[in-house]
Write a protein that binds this DNA or RNA. Structure first.
Lengths: 231, 231
DNA sequence: AACTTGTGTGACATATCCGTGACAGCCTCA
DNA sequence: TGAGGCTGTCACGGATATGTCACACAAGTT
């Protein structure tokens, strides 16, 4: 994988340093900015692949900045992760509505940060926005978050949807329950591994009326695999 | 998954014991150290995959130690989790700034500890390189954990799969039953050596319909060999 | 040939893994 | 406040894999 460029927009120097340290250790190239203006300056030279944006900045808020970038033709496809001290749910929702791809709450561990950065970059890498996945008659539209089996629609809960989306993005490959928890549930939640089984069951059940449950295969002792080929 | 080694650096014996107990129950191999010097000693023998490092140690602080290790070529890639009684935000940032991968605050539950240890180890693992082995028509794909003989698929149990994978990664070479137990079963499980024979048999049986069982050759008095050449 | 040693093979008790239904907690929405 | 949807956990039971044994068989040895 080619080295990725990350722009940090953060006014507090110690946190900036900590983030830079973590990112450079993980082999990212890092550019720093302490406010909106220096951020613009940094972007003029070279567009980053991802921006780590502090929620609170002197002058303009990070949220405003994000909204602005999303409107700009040039920057609208750059991934954004909001960094904030707030734990308020409303802010979180607002942040994501603005167009941030993910959201990290202080205090966070460096490995958590890296994991989220990697996850976002991985997600935004292929083509981008309105992802539309098709698999032998089973189709998933990311924009409308709809799944349809042939003609008729499939009704899925949020978790089942994300699970299926993950599977369809990564077919023909075995994933452990641990890996699935990482990539479908999120890196910072601790849930039992068997929970994966239950959701697999629920997804299979939803897909079964159309016969698509055969795509979800159990690999005993290892995990699960999404594949069109039979066992 | 192979067993991981964890080094605990902690001066208080009861806490050390508690951590050791939790880790061993979760199938990690544990080495203890009570100060910087004994930590160095423990590392000299064998590098751990992860270090649980107490923030406060007699003499040198854990933070100093972490910084030192991060500078050392040999140890800089070993994951570090700081263990501390402090809840102060600044300390946390400072700890992560130093290069710790995560941070656990006393008191902590053993399940939380295990979760964090697992999370950190998982993240520091090298990305999944897609191993794909081929051998005269017999092919094994590590990503999908599939084995196929020519056109049709071969159905294997977990142990047979690992065994075949081991063979195909190390062809043309004789291995004793003991070596095979080490590398396929794991280094510290005790099973009878004859068990290898039984699994060899099962693997041969699965490969036989396609004629590929001839690759698994018995070397009387020594062990087995995987080879395309006959005898 | 008899004996010794090493390996193939089928059977079997057990351990392990996974599918499944049930359930309580938590949301949201009316 | 209650209904209804979603989530994570658990316990049970069935399916499958595992390790060990006993015995058959083969290859050397005396």
């Amino acid at each position: 994988m080619q080295q990725k460029h990350v722009l940090i927009v953060e006014d507090e120097a110690p946190i900036r340093d900590m983030i830079r340290f973590a990112l450079e250790r993980a082999d990212f190239s890092v550019v720093e900015a302490e406010d909106a203006q220096s951020a613009r300056l940094a972007m003029a030279d070279h567009l980053p692949d991802l921006i780590l944006l502090d929620w609170m900045l002197p002058g303009i808020s990070g949220a405003e900045l994000a909204r602005e970038w999303r409107r700009d033709e040039l920057t609208q496809n750059v991934a954004i992760i909001m960094v904030t001290a707030r734990v308020d749910e409303d802010d979180r929702v607002r942040g994501l509505n603005i167009g941030a791809d993910d959201y990290v709450t202080k205090p966070f561990s460096s490995s958590e940060l890296i994991a989220r950065v990697r996850a976002v970059l991985r997600r935004s890498l292929p083509g981008g926005e309105d992802e539309c996945l098709e698999f032998e008659g089973l189709s998933l539209d990311a924009a409308s978050q709809r799944v349809s089996a042939g003609a008729d629609a499939v009704r899925l809960g949020p978790t089942e949807y994300r699970l299926l989306r993950f599977f369809m993005s990564n077919p023909e490959r075995v994933y452990s329950r641990e890996q699935m928890l990482d990539r479908v549930w999120g890196q910072n939640v601790y849930v039992e591994e068997r929970t994966v089984d239950v959701h697999i069951r629920r997804l299979r059940k939803a897909l079964a009326p159309h016969g698509f449950d055969r795509f979800i295969q159990t690999v005993r002792g290892s995990g699960y695999r999404f594949s069109s080929k039979s066992l």
